[in-house]
Design a protein around this nucleic acid. Structure first.
Lengths: 172, 172
DNA sequence: GTCTATAGGATGATAGAC
DNA sequence: GTCTATCATCCTATAGAC
């Protein structure tokens, strides 16, 4: 692997586990087995390194939601949405954890990227004849974010029972 | 107000808005109009200052949940639980925001303190004849945490519609 | 209780050699 | 592309005077 990428993955892992402000460029360099100066050659500054990571993360999120956004069957939309947090690959664990961390540490909301997903949920609920589709969508989104957070913080097993429970509850 | 307390409130506000690692003791001192050395006289070190804030926060949370934990009517338990995030006083806004921030920035879960609350929810659902009381409780808790987070990050108004929606949904 | 001064180390970032 | 050496700044924490 190129050193440029080693830096990026080291930073991703450290940012995700310890937080952006808690991790020094020195620490990243050592973790990546690279000289500290190289970080700045490749990414200009620490913020630039974070931006590069976030750009990759944005692509991953886009791909992840693409299946749902393209789906036309309302029941399938709900099913895929519910199942989504339970099927996160362990290799992308750090990306997810970083999302949650940054949402609070640096107040990077990521809400704009979520909105089409929530809108799609609303549409699905509407199609299925729910009275308050918008509220249903917001509520389910909250629940799913909570589940995703729970998986990240306390492990998959703790949240697993909620999967079939939700599928049953929404009858999908 | 005593300077000891001025330090504490300044730190609370800064930690809540910018995060623990992002705020220096120098910044806290200036914000509190106090010499930097005084922080260490009173709180030993930066971590000690955070601990003092967290201790206060723990008391606030305890009081907040006490009403619900003492309640014996299952419907009332659900009603109070749902209404709770919408009735946070603005003066305690910073405490709440700090809770969410630290949960992710420093991985201070606060889960232990929540458990009796979740257990009480489970009990209420059981009393009301719900089939999967435990899952219902976990789900509602996720939703309420999401709502609380939404209020903090995007304002009360954005989440307000969910209040009556939830009350209706759970028929309380 | 409070302030000033300062130590000692870490931090982000740059320059220059290879 | 990569490393070493280095800088200016900032950070936490302490000492000593008032």
């Amino acid at each position: 692997m190129e050193k440029r990428d080693k830096i990026l993955y080291a930073a991703l892992e450290l940012f995700a586990t310890e937080g952006y402000n808690a991790v020094s460029t020195n620490k990243i360099a050592k973790y990546a087995n690279v000289s500290e100066g190289l970080i700045f050659r490749h990414y200009k500054n620490k913020q630039g390194l974070l931006d590069a990571i976030l750009e990759q993360a944005f692509e991953k999120v886009t791909v992840l939601y693409a299946h749902i956004l393209m789906e036309q069957d309302p029941k399938e939309i709900l099913r895929k949405a519910i199942v989504l947090p339970f099927e996160v690959d362990e290799s992308e664990y750090h990306f997810w954890k970083l999302q949650f961390k940054l949402k609070w540490e640096l107040e990077i909301s990521g809400r704009e990227k979520m909105q089409p997903f929530i809108d799609k949920l609303e549409w699905a609920f509407q199609e299925l004849g729910y009275q308050e589709a918008k509220n249903e969508a917001e509520l389910l989104n909250h629940a799913l974010e909570g589940i995703a957070g729970g998986i990240i913080k306390q492990g998959f097993e703790t949240q697993e029972p909620l999967k079939s429970f939700l599928l049953k509850k929404y009858n999908v």
